[in-house]
C-alpha cells in the first residue's frame, strides 16, 4: 500500500517546466530510450505525480542513467518536457538527498 502524498506532489511539481501531468502513458518514451531502462520516464513520472517519494528515490540510479538525449521527447505525443522533468528530479535529489 502506497500512501499518496500531496505535499511531495507539490514539491516535485513546483517547477513550471515540470509538465509530467500531460503524459498520456503511451509508453513511446520507454520504447525508444537508448538506455533501455523500462522504468524511464513514464512510470517514474507517475511515481512522482502520485507523490510516492519512496518509489521515486528507490529509482535514483535510473534518474541518473538518463542521457538527457531527448530522443523520447522527439517522439512524445503529448509534448512532455521529459528531459527537463528528469533534470528536475535530479535537482530535487541533489538538494534533498545529496545535500549538494
Amino acid at each position: 500500500m502506497a500512501k499518496v502524498n500531496p505535499a511531495f506532489i507539490e514539491k516535485v511539481t513546483a517547477s513550471e517546466e515540470f509538465n509530467a501531468t500531460e503524459c498520456m502513458n503511451c509508453g513511446v518514451c520507454s520504447a525508444v530510450c537508448p538506455v533501455e531502462i523500462d522504468l524511464l520516464p513514464r512510470k517514474l513520472f507517475r511515481y512522482a505525480l502520485l507523490g510516492l517519494e519512496d518509489k521515486v528515490l528507490e529509482h535514483t540510479p535510473a534518474i541518473y542513467q538518463c542521457l538527457l538525449c531527448k530522443l523520447c521527447e522527439a517522439n512524445c505525443t503529448a509534448d512532455v518536457h521529459i528531459a527537463e522533468n528528469v533534470r528536475f528530479l535530479r535537482t530535487y535529489i541533489s538538494k534533498e538527498v545529496y545535500k549538494l
Binding site: 541518473y64 542513467q65 542521457l67 530522443l71
Partner: peptide, 29 residues
Amino acid sequence: KDNRNLTHCCGGPIESLFPGMAHQIGKKR
C-alpha cells in the same frame, strides 16, 4: 539509421556515473 532530430545518443552523458552502460549504448551506435 537514426539521424537528424532522431539521432541516437553516443552514451557519453552517463559515462562518468555508469561507464558500463554508456559503453553498451556507444557500441549500439
